[in-house]
Simulated scan of single mutants.
Amino acid sequence: MSVVKLIVEYEGTRYVGWQVQPNGPSVQAEIERALATLHEGPRRVTAAGRTDAGVHARGQVVSFPEDHPLPEKAYVRGMNALLPADVAVRAASLEPDGFDARRSARGKRYRYVIENVDTRAPLTRRVAWQIFQPLDVAAMRAAASPLVGRHDFAAFQASDCACAHAVREVRRLEVLGEAGGRIEVVVEATAFVKHMVRNIVGTLVEVGRGKRAAGSIPTLIESRDRTLAGPTAPPQGLCLEEVFY
């Protein structure tokens, strides 16, 4: 049996997240609704990651088994004709039997955008965290460095995370840009615990605001105590950029 792989982009503002939920519209529901129309029957899909409410994606990966797959172009053109304007299929391919968007993934890259501006900027309010106080970006970079590598990220894990443990390997963590403009936090890891990127960003912003010493991060990691880390950064600045296989 073939497996259809889709690369999906979406602006997550009006969704309760990727996963189907009873309390509002989800990206998964939109994808499955379009597929049901194309195939004239229900299809259940698996995603590489369950993005939260308000979080965006440029490179979400979706897969589902299919006995009689359509031509690859039909998934792109056909689904985009059926999907709402804030969701799109960017590419489609056929993968070997056994491919699974989640289980086959070897890593993901997220990008978190901060607009460090003097006053509110309406055009970026849905895709960035707007912070009006100047941030010490050099201190944020220094604080980010100890987070690279294999650690127990329990201090950056949501309290309701269902993962068996919080040990993850961060391959890349960069703070790009300068104070008074666009700052981007790029995080690439083998896997993530719930809210890990947003909690890392919230902690780095505390460093940038002078509320936390850059050198305190190793001790914070060792504590494994979520209450000692910074607040969870708001969802709109986060985007799932790419999934690696």
Results as ranks from 00 to 15, higher is better:
Arg141Cys: 09
Val55His: 08
Glu66Ala: 12
Ala85Phe: 05
Gly78Cys: 03
Asp118Cys: 12
Ala144Ile: 08
Gln130Trp: 05
Gln133Cys: 01
Val61Ala: 04
Ala101Val: 01
Glu115Leu: 15
Gln157Leu: 13
Ile131Asn: 08
Leu70Asn: 12
Ala105His: 01
Asn80Pro: 03
Pro146Asn: 03
Pro146Asp: 03
Ala155Trp: 04
Val127Ala: 14
Asp152Gln: 03
Glu66Lys: 10
Ala92Arg: 05
Tyr110Asp: 07
Ile114Tyr: 03
Leu135Lys: 03
Asp86Trp: 03
Asp152Ala: 01
Pro65Ala: 04
Leu123Gly: 15
Asp86Arg: 09
Gly54Pro: 05
Ser93Cys: 11
Leu70Phe: 12
His68Lys: 08
Ile131Met: 06
Gly98Ala: 09
Tyr110Lys: 01
Val89Trp: 05
Arg103Gln: 07
Lys108Thr: 10
Ala142Trp: 01
Arg120Asp: 15
Ala81Lys: 10
Ser159Ile: 13
Val113Ala: 10
Ala144Val: 12
Ala91Glu: 14
Asp67Gln: 13
Val148Arg: 02
Gly49Tyr: 00
His56Ile: 05
Pro84Trp: 02
Arg126His: 14
Thr51Ile: 08
His68Gln: 10
His68Ala: 12
Leu83Arg: 08
Asp118Ile: 13
Leu94Ser: 09
Val148Met: 03
Asp100His: 14
Glu72Leu: 02
Pro134Ala: 00
Ala138Leu: 02
Arg126Lys: 12
Ala74His: 07
Arg77Leu: 11
Ala47His: 06
Asp136His: 02
Asp52Met: 08
Ala47Arg: 06
Phe99Leu: 07
Tyr75Trp: 00
Arg111Glu: 12
Pro65Arg: 08
Arg103Cys: 11
Leu147Ala: 07
Gly149Arg: 11
Arg111Val: 14
Glu115Lys: 06
Glu72Lys: 04
Gly59Pro: 10
Tyr112His: 02
Leu70Asp: 13
Leu147Ser: 08
